[in-house]
Design a protein around this nucleic acid. Structure first.
Length: 140
DNA sequence: GCCAACGTTGGC
DNA sequence: GCCAACGTTGGC
C-alpha cells in the first residue's frame, strides 16, 4: 500500500464535504497538473492519503482512502486528465498544522515542505507514521 | 492582497 | 527544442 496527500482549499472542497459523501466517495477532479495526475495514475484501491486544507487553514485534517482507480475526469472533455475517487476514513483527533510539519526534522523532506504547490503528492511510510503521531490518530 | 515559485503555452 | 510570457497556486 502507498501513501499520498491530497490538497484542497476548504472553501472549494473541504473535509466536511468529503465526509458528507460517505463510503461512496467522490472524484478528486479538477487536477490540471501532469505530476499530480501521474501520481493519481499510480494509485491503487485501498491506498491511503492525508486530506490537507490549504490557504486559510494549512493543516492535515483527516485520512482518506482511494476507492476507485484513475479514470477520466468527468469535469472535462480533455482526455489528458484523469482522477481517482477517494472516501473519508477518519478525521485527525488533532489537526497537524503546516508549521508543525515544517518544524519537525523528520518531516523536512516532505513534498508539502519542498514543493508546496503540488496538489497531489506521495508520502513515505515514515512520514505517514509521524504525521499520524502528531495528529494523535491511528495510522492504520 | 502581494509575491515567489513553478508549470504551461506558444513563438521562433 | 529553447525560452519568454503568462497564469495559477499557496504561503505569508
Amino acid at each position: 500500500m502507498n501513501y499520498w496527500l491530497f490538497k484542497s482549499e476548504p472553501s472549494t472542497w473541504s473535509w466536511d464535504d468529503q465526509v458528507a459523501k460517505g463510503d461512496a466517495g467522490e472524484e478528486w477532479d479538477g487536477v490540471r497538473n501532469y505530476q499530480a495526475r501521474n501520481f493519481m495514475r499510480e494509485m491503487a484501491v485501498g491506498d491511503r492519503g492525508f486530506f490537507y486544507h490549504s490557504q486559510s487553514e494549512k493543516a492535515v485534517v483527516g485520512i482518506v482512502e482511494v476507492c476507485a482507480e484513475a479514470h477520466p475526469d468527468s469535469t472535462t472533455d480533455d482526455e489528458r486528465w484523469d482522477c481517482v475517487d477517494i472516501k473519508a476514513v477518519r478525521p485527525f483527533a488533532t489537526q497537524v498544522m503546516l508549521d508543525q510539519i515544517k518544524a519537525d526534522e523528520r518531516l523536512a523532506e516532505m513534498v508539502l515542505v519542498k514543493n508546496s504547490r503540488l496538489s497531489v503528492q506521495p508520502v513515505t511510510p515514515e512520514e505517514w507514521k509521524r504525521v499520524c503521531e502528531l495528529g494523535e490518530t491511528d495510522a492504520n
